[in-house]
Design a protein around this nucleic acid. Sequence first.
DNA 1: CTGTTAGCGCATTCAA
DNA 2: TTGAATGCGCTAACAG
Lengths: 341, 341
Amino acid sequence: MARKRPATMADIAHAAGVSRTTVSFVLNDRTDVMIPEATRDRVHRAAADLGYRRNAAAQALAKQSSGLFGLVTEIVTSPFAVDIIRGAQQHAWEQDRFLLIAPSEDEQALEPAAIEKLLEQRVDGLILAATWHRAIRVPEIVKDVPCVLVNCYDEEGVLPSVVPDEVAGGRRAARAFIEAGHTRIGHITLAEGIPAQVGRLAGFRTELAEAGIVLDDDLVRAGDATAESGYTEGRALLDRPDRPTAIFCGNDRIAMGLYDAAKELGLSIPEDLSVVGFDDQEILAAYLRPGLTTVALPFAEMGAVGVSMLTAMTAGSTIDDTHVVIDCPLRIRSSVGPVTP
Amino acid sequence: MARKRPATMADIAHAAGVSRTTVSFVLNDRTDVMIPEATRDRVHRAAADLGYRRNAAAQALAKQSSGLFGLVTEIVTSPFAVDIIRGAQQHAWEQDRFLLIAPSEDEQALEPAAIEKLLEQRVDGLILAATWHRAIRVPEIVKDVPCVLVNCYDEEGVLPSVVPDEVAGGRRAARAFIEAGHTRIGHITLAEGIPAQVGRLAGFRTELAEAGIVLDDDLVRAGDATAESGYTEGRALLDRPDRPTAIFCGNDRIAMGLYDAAKELGLSIPEDLSVVGFDDQEILAAYLRPGLTTVALPFAEMGAVGVSMLTAMTAGSTIDDTHVVIDCPLRIRSSVGPVTP
DNA sequence: CTGTTAGCGCATTCAA
DNA sequence: TTGAATGCGCTAACAG
């Protein structure tokens, strides 16, 4: 039978014949105060007997700290958000913290209203996470609490952030082609001007250049992050008499479209065409035939790192690296092969 | 500049020249007390001026209710968990509630320790969610709080639950084949004895029988929920001289393996072979070529319904349907075609 | 209609 | 070492 009124520390104190202070001390394992083993035992036993359970609300109120972190992200609209959540959640859990998730839908403002709700819950810190790398406008109210940006950044660069290393990722893609001996290389872009596109292409181009390969501008086609554009621009590239032997796609969905284009032309991957994608999108990249070699966007890791940074900040320790850049490893599968004459 | 000490209701009372009670009443929009418009305005204005923000911890303590729901699920290990989370989260948010997520890894016991932490947070209710439909052993402690089971059930049937209608799902799959004129039909199972397998096959078989078609036991092969088994058992089925013209797969991954088997034999889908899967697994089903017609497992909806039930329970209203069964709709894509002689 | 008062459960300062 | 007292911010009886 469940007790009508949950046991409190006062109840324990009464049962164990000590004061509430003592109970608080032993239950919180405070080492700065010496309490006889016997007393501790009595308290613990009484707590167990009464089925005592700490009241987080009371503790939060007294301590002025909830032990909660808030995470605002595009949970409903983006398949990538779940990975951020997973990483952050797991890390938070390991440090005995709960994560409060607030949905964001507005790409610009990240929902001040949602943040306000989080603040009402007195979260100890806030993570603002985007699902595509970009600059965001941070609402004024976040000034009231420690805050870190994940997969995004504020234009002023005042808030700590963790973002993927797009440039290094682009380099990795290039390296895969270089090592396979490709020189005639194409690229289908993601979108104009966004950090992901700019960074990836810059890294890609630089790495190629350092290997003595110049990326022919004619072989750079403007996609729009969809599979359709991958197909269309892929056809444009592959229909050329001097078609490239390798194509770097702005993301995995573009690569998927490119696969279709190649298949339609009777070109097989990787014999006739090598492909590298970006994102390592769950399921997609691994399940394409052949498996897509792609640069991973480590969302879970970014989420986890965000929590780490927040923990450090709330603990008062000063962060050394306030702008963390996360490595994007190459996931090697089967879509890159040696160039065949 | 952020105030050092956040404003409290007492501050507002002081500033507006009223009592704390009055402030509490107007800020909570209590309609059962009549307060002059003028007073309300003064209070609201003072609150705005002071940048007042409700303290959820204090409110929870005083009201003995946190406004939080707990969700324990296999967030780290299962790709399906995110859909439950998404559905539950979205629904909870709409009712001004936060969801506290606790990870579960133990398939049997659902982590009493995790539940204990949730209970310390004084969640108003608990959702225990599984990612594959099964019976679970519910820890004793959940007796202390309203609780609903999602995609699982307790053997005693005492706790409210929401589960998918596997049988009706199986019927839907059969119907798709029947309507396309198939009579020689195979099945690759998911696993022995689990509710999903039992229900799906029972529904499938029944629907066929009602159409005058008997499911040949020789064409029912034991898979194990993996793509590999889909390939292996698919080969076993398709290598027969009297191979089936349609195969119902226990899940989408099996269907994926079956696609490979068919491709290898030069059989094209749906011309030479019709396929129906189960799960409508994100990305996978839609991205297979051709798109996989499959029975959807509506995780998000189950999560949302779970929250609804919990809300009703915590509100004191008695639930009419304590064991909700969710419909599994057929997602029609391109893997089922008419039987070709 | 509004103010007074008394908790809610816990942490913590200060005495003893 | 332990206990008494106080405050955290808010809600809800109960008066006025």
